[in-house]
């Protein structure tokens, strides 16, 4: 009874393998990580380069990829490093201060319904005011230097962290809070040992949003008043009609945001692997 079953099973198992083998081989090269997006990018770049040449598009309308590369080279690595360093410093300082303000504030909001009701509308007002409109005022009030830029970056980054962290702190399983109460543990330990760790997934989803907002904040601040930074460089280049260089700056900003986002993701993966969804890659 069992022998025909086995042969049937083995033949049916073998057949699809031999049939699909050539197909998977062809597909696997295309599906290897990075290959498909890389090819897509290459095609777009070629089409872009071709279009700018074919239609003789002036570089201040749309510079060609090779033109942007030339613009990048014309600036020189040391000057790029200076601009990138300035933007990065403001973005990271603002981000760090933002976290240091937002997380304790979230703890206060989560613990006190009264304060939460009192402060929340103010937070919403701050958040709904367009940062681009506030930035010049802040620069005038606080003067030159990094401080006003850091403040602008803070203003744009901290709201998502406050909201998400507060939500996370309230999302703790009620059983564990009862357990904490039944142990008569000090209230701060309920925060440090239960609520904050449970909020980690929420905090990190906000940190990922805020890190890209931090770059935006730094650039907005540089647009208003700065003598260094990638945002300042883009504005300066456009005012001089050096569009290929402005595009190079833009691509650098995009790359910067992407790398910072990946860095936050990596930190979560390394330090809090349990906080990621189970089936995440």
């Amino acid at each position: 009874m069992s022998s025909p079953d086995i042969s049937a099973a083995s033949s049916s198992a073998a057949r699809p393998e031999t049939e699909t083998a050539p197909r998977t081989k062809r597909g696997s090269l295309l599906l290897a990580p990075g290959v498909l997006p890389g090819l897509t990018t290459l095609v777009i770049l070629l089409a872009w380069e071709g279009a700018t040449r074919l239609f003789a598009i002036p570089s201040f309308v749309l510079p060609s990829p090779l033109g942007i590369l030339a613009g990048f080279e014309a600036v020189g690595l040391s000057r790029w490093a200076e601009h990138i360093g300035a933007t990065l410093r403001v973005a990271m300082l603002g981000y760090a201060v933002s976290i240091l303000v937002a997380v304790p504030l979230a703890i206060v909001l989560a613990r006190s319904p009264v304060l939460s009701r009192a402060l929340y509308p103010i937070l919403v007002v701050v958040q709904s005011t367009p940062i681009v409109a506030v930035a010049p005022i802040i620069i005038v009030v606080m003067g030159a230097g990094d401080l006003p830029r850091v403040v602008i970056t803070c203003l744009i980054t901290f709201f998502p962290i406050v909201v998400s962290t507060t939500t996370g702190l309230m999302a703790t399983p009620p059983e564990l809070i009862e357990l904490s109460k039944s142990l008569r543990a000090p209230a701060w330990r309920e925060i440090t040992q239960i609520r904050l760790p449970f909020a980690v997934p929420y905090i990190f989803s906000a940190l990922k949003i805020s890190i890209t907002l931090a770059v935006i904040g730094a650039v907005v601040a540089e647009f208003v008043a700065a003598e260094k930074g990638v945002g300042y460089f883009i504005q300066f280049s456009t005012s001089m009609f050096r569009l290929p260089q402005a595009w190079a700056g833009l691509l650098i900003l995009a790359g910067m945001s992407l790398l910072l986002f990946q860095a936050v993701t990596l930190i979560q993966k390394r330090v809090f692997p349990w906080s990621l969804p189970k089936d995440a890659p």
């Binding site: 399983p173 059983e175 009862e178 357990l179 142990l183 008569r184 040992q193 760790p197």
Partner: peptide
């Protein structure tokens, strides 16, 4: 002198089995 077992285990997802068992002592 009262211990509680809940309907769901509600363990700490970041803590090992050992640390979860030690949690009441560490928390108190």
């Amino acid at each position: 002198d009262v211990g509680i077992v809940f309907q769901k285990p509600t363990l700490l997802p970041w803590a090992s089995v050992e640390d979860n068992i030690l949690f009441p002592a560490r928390h108190k």
